[in-house]
Amino acid sequence: MTQAEGTFNRLANPTRFMGLASTILPWLTGLTAILLVAGLYLAFFVAPEDYQQGHTVKIMFIHVPFAWLAMMGYSVIAIASIGSLIWRHPMADVAAKTAAPIGACFTLLALITGSLWGKPMWGTYWVWDARLTSVLLLFFLYLGLMALWQAIEEPSRAGRAAAILAIVGSVNIPIIKFSVDWWNTLHQPASVVKLDGPAIHSSILIPLLIMAAAFTCLFFVLHLMAMRTEVLRRRVQALRLTHVDAAGATQGARA
């Protein structure tokens, strides 16, 4: 067994995971705070204003990280789903379940900040641009996953059903992306200001990268916390079930 496999297997034990999570979390939270403060300072006070877009360019510093995390969140779910389907890794199941609401939030935030940015820039809150549409469809996939998790009561069954859906979704996302690109170029030839038109100057790029790193750390802080909560919730559930069983047994004995 290689070292990586050893760590992978050791993490399957929720207690070990809890220990590891509580060691990492304070450091990661601190790092997130530092990066976020630094990134916000740079973005708002140091980065120059765009000569065309003025103040509104500041939205980019949160919008781009949100959009990136929307995709990363789904990748986390897809990888965790493979782990939970193939190796029946119990923490992978927890990881996939808890990543979904966080990823969905970031996707929604990306859509909202995008449309707030779109209003002054394009004159409308929403355009059926290929990129916007595919992010919207990604949001629907997140909603479907969360709904499936809620609909099935038994956690292990819900986890595996959602894992199948997540993997199907990850196969489908490139096709959806491709088809939406195709659809848009057929109907309205590019009329939209593209972000990647001119090369981004380093005075904007560096704050953007720091913000991206900050929000990525924030994602993992929230994810670790959510995973911890989920493990505790399952333990409470198990304890309650044993209590109910014990109470049922004593009543049965009395009767």
Binding site: L137, F140, L141, L143, A147, N172, S179, L186
Partner: peptide, 19 residues
């Protein structure tokens, strides 16, 4: 629930059928 799960997956079929 089925509609929520499946309709996003139908989009490629819809797009290319109409195209």
């Amino acid at each position: 629930l089925l509609a929520l799960l499946i309709l996003p997956l139908y989009t490629p079929v819809l797009i290319f059928g109409v195209a």
